[in-house]
Amino acid sequence: MSSFLLIDMILLGLAAVVAIGVISVRSLLSATMLGGIYSLLMALIWQNMNAVDVAFTEAAVGAGISTVLLVGTLLHTRRETNQSPAIHWPALLTVVLTGSFLIYGTVDMPDYGDASAPIHTGRVQQLLGQRVGKVDNEGVHHAWTYSTMAEQSVERDEPERSFPPERSHGEDHGGDAEAGAHGHPNDDFKGHSPNTVTSLLAAYRGYDTMYETAVIFTAGMAMVLLLRRREERA
C-alpha cells in the first residue's frame, strides 16, 4: 500500500468524523466551525489527488466565504438548534442506498492511471505514433514551435477545420500522409489533445478560469469587507 493511499484514507476518515460531528452538535456556531475544519481537510484530500485548482476553490469558498456567510446568518438566528437530533429513517435509507449504488458503480471503473482505460484507447495509437516532441530515426527533433506553424500554414493554404476532427485509426498511421492538415504541421493530433478529458478541459478552459477568478475575487471582496475599518455605531 502506497503512503499516498494511506494518507488519503486517514484524511477521508477524519473528514467523515468531522461530518458526523457537524450533524450531531447542538450549537450552530460549533457546527459552522466544524464545517471550516471539514473544508480544510477536503482541501488536503484534493491536493493529494493533484487537483490543485479545486483545492484553491475549496480554500476560498469552503474555509473563507462560507464560514463568513454562515456566521453572518447566525447573527439573525438563534445559536442553538431547537430540536433534539433524531434519526429520520427514510432519509437514512435513501442515503445509504444511493451510496451503495455509487460504490457499486466504482467497481467497474478502470484503475487509476490505467493505460487501457476507455479515455485513452481512442487515440492511444496516435499517441504512440506521433512525431512532435520525439527524435525520429534521422536524428531530427520535431520541436513544437509557433514559427514553423506560421510559415507552413501560409504556404499550405489551410482547409476549413472541422470539429470534431476526423479520426484515423489505421495501422499504418505514421502521421506523414495527412500530418499538418489541421493545426501544427508536425502535430498528428491536428491541434487536439489525445486524452478525452484533457481536450474537454481545454475546450472549456476559459469558463473554468473565469469562474475560478470570480470565486477568488469574491473571496478578496469579503476579506476587504470584513477587515475594513469603520466608525463605531452607538
Binding site: L29, T32, A55, A59, A60, A63, G64, M223, L226, L227
Partner: peptide, 16 residues
C-alpha cells in the same frame, strides 16, 4: 495554495 490558506484561515478566525 499554502499562501492562500494562511490568509483565509486568519480571515475565518477573525470573522468568528
Amino acid at each position: 495554495l499554502a499562501v492562500v490558506y494562511a490568509l483565509v484561515n486568519f480571515v475565518a478566525t477573525v470573522a468568528i
